[in-house]
Design a protein around this nucleic acid. Structure first.
Lengths: 122, 122
DNA sequence: TTTATAGTTCATAAAATCGGAACTAATGAA
DNA sequence: TTCATTAGTTCCGATTTTATGAACTATAAA
């Protein structure tokens, strides 16, 4: 199994961050990681926002979060410890992550019923 | 030709905004629109950041920007007047666009030579 | 050892993106 | 009016990306 890739802070790009956070599942995961005071395992996200995520998909999502620089993943025994790198990112791009997370909170508070995608609630 | 779709402010989503701005060409276009004091035509972006963009691709990019709510497009005679909706968005998601544009500026100031994509400089 | 658990990788199907060619719509000239 | 021009959109095939079940790997515990 190939070792996990983490970009150094100065290689983190805005594009990659925005792309990573343009997916509702991934933002939910990040918000969870940011909000908790201890590292989260991948499997703790198998169900998120009342939605079951297949574990191969979940693995991909965490890879995207890691490789964009948003999350650090460290193998601890059989499981993975996922922690936020937002503090580092905030030094490079002040206010970016905060305003995105903030906007997400506003959005979920003002959510109105929406046309749902074909199979959003499998 | 189908009329242009613009979401109302309360239907604008963070996901759509982030997705729209996760593409370097689209951010460049938005920054251009935001920075100029008069409406910009689509064709003014046929060359952006020293890069030629095919017009079908450009049309798609502007569609993404419009449908995410970032840009308003109004047909004026034979051409299109593209203007920013950032002020509206800022009311709903304070600081979001500003911090993204800001981050992009920081990034382009600190840019170091990077592995380029297969045919980025055609 | 074997078994169990947590994650990753592989293969493939489905969806999104790119860009040339054809099309549409408005304008102006003959 | 008709023709030509200019600005943008739409169509469609090729490429790229994403999603997910199945197979695999790595660690730990029995």
């Amino acid at each position: 199994m190939r070792p996990l890739f983490h970009p150094s802070v100065e290689d983190i790009t805005v594009e990659a961050i925005l792309h990573a956070l343009s997916d509702p599942v991934r933002v939910a995961i990040l918000i969870e990681i940011v909000g908790s005071d201890c590292p989260q395992s991948c499997s703790s996200f198998l169900e998120i926002r009342n939605q079951a995520i297949p574990k191969s998909t979940l693995s991909q999502h965490l890879k995207v979060l890691r490789e964009s620089g948003l999350v650090r993943g460290e193998r601890k025994g059989v499981e993975m410890h996922n922690t936020s790198r937002c503090a580092e990112i905030d030094k490079r791009f002040p206010g970016l992550i905060t305003s995105i997370v903030n906007a997400h909170n506003i959005q979920s508070q003002t959510m109105r019923p929406r046309r749902r995608k074909a199979n959003a609630d499998r």
